[in-house]
Design a protein around this nucleic acid. Structure first.
Lengths: 192, 192
DNA sequence: TCGGTTGTCTAGCGGTGCTAGAATCGAGGC
DNA sequence: GCCTCGATTCTAGCACCGCTAGACAACCGA
């Protein structure tokens, strides 16, 4: 069995290498630069090897997305844990979210802009995605306000952050107002 | 001169045909299906003809985006004109915006998701884009609240709508809560 | 009717995601 | 230690992409 175990380990290792390399390449040069040929060359295997791990490019994007979701959830939880008041927690959450999107555009795009073949708002949603939403919900349910369903409030707050993140990064918002935009959003949306 | 005039008219007509066909195809089958070959076939010309009107596919997307921006601005203005109170105007604005995004996904994507080579938040921004933002600003400046810069408030409100539109359409939000989400957003963000 | 310009097409470039079938490698039996 | 055979990896190629050079045809003005 030891031989098979070693092979399995090597296979898993190579799969991690593929995902990490795809993400690295995407962060460096954008997802357009992530072609199966370039990716194969970087991992020093031939193209078809990719297809023994993933059904296609879409699944590779999906794998990067799941990795990103895990990191996003961790970043949000770390930021909110340090803050004192509910309002400070929400500001920290928003800042952590926007910082993550700005610092990891490729991972963020894999999650929310590109088609990684992932399901959302559904029982078949992968665990990391549900957990990322849960990380938002944990802090935001404190400030949803009376009579407002926390899940729905979280969707609205999340959508607002998503809009700020994507429009901001695409150069469609004035860069210098990033901070006041977040403050305004928190002050108006959160009930404390 | 009449011959040249006729030729110019025909050229302009064909350009409109290209843009309309590209948009139609994108609305029917998504932007992925809009290839230069298919587009050329639909307008019953050969591929290179497209390149005598536009520098490339990106510029065609940009043309659809400008068309969409004009329609979006008109839709928002028509909806807000009918409403009585400031709050009702903002709700109407939000609904018109989200309805436009849902009913014209290809045009909306050309505007805000794809790279149409257009500039934003800049003096070189094309007129239709500035006007669409202005259409939002006209209604939203009423409810920005004291001491809040209307332009910045509009950016935040717009980003929130954009987030709801994109995440909603991608199936990342619960469909049945679309209306309460808009109501919540307006009640919290708008000061009346 | 002809000459020349203008416009359009055919054909092809290098690239994409993906795959069939050949070739190679390595584990296990003798 | 060799040899067989199955698993693994590669080479080569598919159909398609955006885009363009150069051949060709059509039309306008003389």
């Amino acid at each position: 069995m030891s031989v098979q175990e070693r092979k399995q380990r090597e296979l898993a290792e190579r799969e991690r290498l593929i995902v990490a390399t795809a993400r690295e390449l995407a962060e460096q040069q954008g997802w357009d630069a992530v072609t199966t040929r370039r990716l194969a060359e970087r991992i020093e295997y031939s193209q078809p090897v990719l297809y023994s791990h993933f059904r296609g490019k879409r699944e590779i994007i999906g794998a990067v997305a799941l990795e990103g979701a895990t990191e996003l959830a961790a970043a949000v939880r770390a930021a909110t844990a340090e803050a004192g008041s509910p309002r400070a927690r929400v500001v920290a959450l928003g800042r952590a979210y926007l910082d993550f999107a700005a610092a990891n555009p490729a991972a963020y795009d894999a999650l929310f802009q590109l088609d990684g073949g992932l399901l959302f708002a559904n029982e078949a949603t992968p665990e990391p995605l549900k957990d990322a939403f849960a990380a938002l919900l944990e802090t935001l349910c404190e400030v949803a306000g009376d009579g407002v369903e926390p899940g729905m409030f979280t969707e609205v707050f999340w959508a607002s952050l998503h809009g700020l993140a994507t429009l901001g990064r695409a150069g469609r918002l004035l860069p210098e107002d990033a901070e006041p935009r977040l403050e305004l959003l928190v002050d108006r949306l959160a009930v404390s």
